[in-house]
Design a protein around this nucleic acid. Structure first.
Lengths: 224, 224, 224, 224
DNA sequence: GATGAATGAGAATTCATTCAT
DNA sequence: CATGAATGAATTCTCATTCAT
């Protein structure tokens, strides 16, 4: 009984997966407008009506595609980021990963864009949030560790980070030159450094502070 | 005769202007998809068929809206940039102008985006080119004057410059906080500085890194 | 289960029948150009979209009307022809049947004509083929039996047979005189006889000609 | 003054000629439906509005094309028929001429057909009348001369004559075989002979009559 | 008479969504 | 739950015709 229930649930999940997958594929092949519900149903191996058993309407279906896309992205980014140590390197890893993925799946980014176009909803934000959180986490950790300036405007940095990459991809796709990828990454990191790193003057003060603090702790230790 | 001809031409131009204007308005109010040709015709005070006398089809009409938008932008930016002297200040002025305009006319930017979505044309690039040229000009002049590093990767900087602003606007619109505008500009310029300015500090930063590493070890020691 | 399937299929068939029937009717009433899809749908008691479930487009729908028309014709002709024995009588029967049907359904013949006008397809030929085959069969049998001359040019005779009738109908409809029907049939058969039958008499006529000519010469001589 | 008036009239006539000519050409190239008034105007070198100064509407314009077509045909046929003597030969000449012209200008025949399709007018008849009159004249003369049977059903013969040829052309165009032309003509004439010529029984009576008459004349001669 | 810009009725077709089975 | 036949609203674009100049 338990098994059958489980099987049932799995079947449901599988079907949903098949539908989202088919929708993603049809979208890739034809674009959202041209991706017909009938085609998606056919590709998913279900009847047209079944689509509406799982998703309220076409928009909801494509929203699911987008959501899954962001989930994939988040998962991938997490893995990549976890593989390196310093926040700086993590930023670099995240940038590389993100740029590559935007390039590969540009259409999906567009979809996420087009989808919310006109319909003033904010689900887009929700989809992205987890992904962006990874970025935020790196910055925060960097600040905590003292790698980054505590004054770093995290929110604005996100704009710099993701905005630059999205635009760069558009430029690359437009011009057909994808060889700029490493250069673009280098520049992006240089730019973030410009914002994140303590600038000359403050840096010295910071450095002195920390050195003093460390010494103070050593003193405390030796006093124990 | 000359007068009459002139009048005729003017009428044509006025009508085209009225149509583009109406299209822009309808688009703003309803979005491209929901902006019906019939509504635009009504708003422009012409018959539906007349629309097709001036523009081949809906897409062409909206392309005209976008083109005019970029022309407006280019003109405004030129003026703003001409008012200040140093490339650095010009960059700041351009940034401020651009950010403000993207915020005001965000829908038009989206339109320019969505419009070319699917239809593989490159007119978008053409529309934007003149505008982007202003940016390029500033950078080039800055390099000539010695204000900016000759190694400045102009093309990539464009991605940084415009990408960051577009994304920032999206963030602002999403969060509803437009008060970040000055901060966003400041950060953007700081970031561009990081890329544009002759790099002398980095060595200092390197130094700082090494010092930091040493301190970190001391900390580790003291924490033990 | 079997029953339900059968019912379903029947429903489909019924609906298609209703649509074709309505199309035929609307066409008769208004002509192809003026027969609107909306009207046909209404007449068939289905939604407009349903029309496109059964037929790709308007042309396909009317092609179906034409096809069915030829099928009806073929069936009717087969029956009529089977009722008599000699090829000569069969030809007469076929002629009578055809003439009557063209008169009754002239618009349908026109449709079949107009339909293929412009669109370079050959389905028209296919539609007609079965019908024309009946004619060919009669001629062939007649030749085999020795009723008709073995040199009979079957293909050309078809032109004579069907062409004369089509044109005769146009004449009748134009002049409003349909009473010529029997006379037209009589003439047609006489004409086919002229082509089908072995010619023997003419020589006798020649004989008279020669005698007359000779007398005429004698008269001329004696009058001199 | 007279000259100027004449010139004016000629201009009018020329313009009308240019329009009809352009319409005929556009029709040939694209078919009636696809031949746009704007295109015709352009081809004729006049403004669109001007078309309506000469012809009430599109249908009237194409009716004029058809009318001119029949006039051309009539003139050509008259010439060809005048070149031979006996009614029998004239018939043959007319048939040959007609068949060739239908083949060459099949589209125009179709136009004359399609044009009147739906709009229940009879101008078609008028257009054709003069042409058909040529046929009638030949038959009548043949009857007067005693070449053809006085009982010849002229009206029905027209159906045979023209119907067979129209249908034959359709067959030829459909099958792509135009080499049947002489054979088709031969058969057509044989068929008309079958109807026009005194048939077997009457012929025998006729023969007897004529023989008696000849003998009577011989008797008269010998009595002199 | 000539022009040609403006008109606007008109219609085929699509396709997301529903609901009886 | 699944189906897929039926729905019908919705919209672009065309082009014959008009009429102010």
């Amino acid at each position: 009984m338990t098994v059958r229930t489980k099987t049932k649930r799995e079947k449901l999940a599988e079907r949903e997966e098949a539908i989202v997958s088919a929708a993603r594929k049809m979208f890739h092949e034809r674009g959202m407008q041209a991706a017909k519900m009938a085609d998606i149903a056919a590709a998913a191996g279900v009847a047209e009506g079944t689509l509406y058993l799982y998703f309220k309407n076409k928009e909801a279906l494509f929203a699911a595609v987008v959501t899954r896309h962001w989930e994939d992205l988040t998962e991938g980014a997490s893995r990549v980021v976890a593989e390196v140590d310093t926040p700086r390197d993590q930023l670099a890893a995240l940038a590389q990963f993100t740029l590559r993925r935007i390039l590969d799946d540009w259409k999906l980014f567009e979809l996420s864009f087009v989808l919310h176009y006109g319909s003033g909803d904010t689900s887009d934000a929700t989809d992205k949030r987890a992904y962006v959180r990874i970025f935020d986490g790196i910055i925060e950790r960097g600040i905590d560790r003292g790698d980054f300036s505590p004054e770093a405007p995290v929110r604005l940095l996100r704009d710099l980070f993701f905005g630059t990459m999205e635009y760069a991809v558009r430029s690359m796709l437009r011009s057909g030159k994808q060889d700029d990828e490493p250069a673009a990454l280098a520049m992006l990191l240089k730019a973030t450094d410009g914002v994140l790193m303590p600038t000359a003057e403050p840096q010295k003060a910071d450095l002195a502070d920390r050195l003093e603090a460390a010494v103070a702790r050593l003193e405390a230790m030796s006093n124990r």
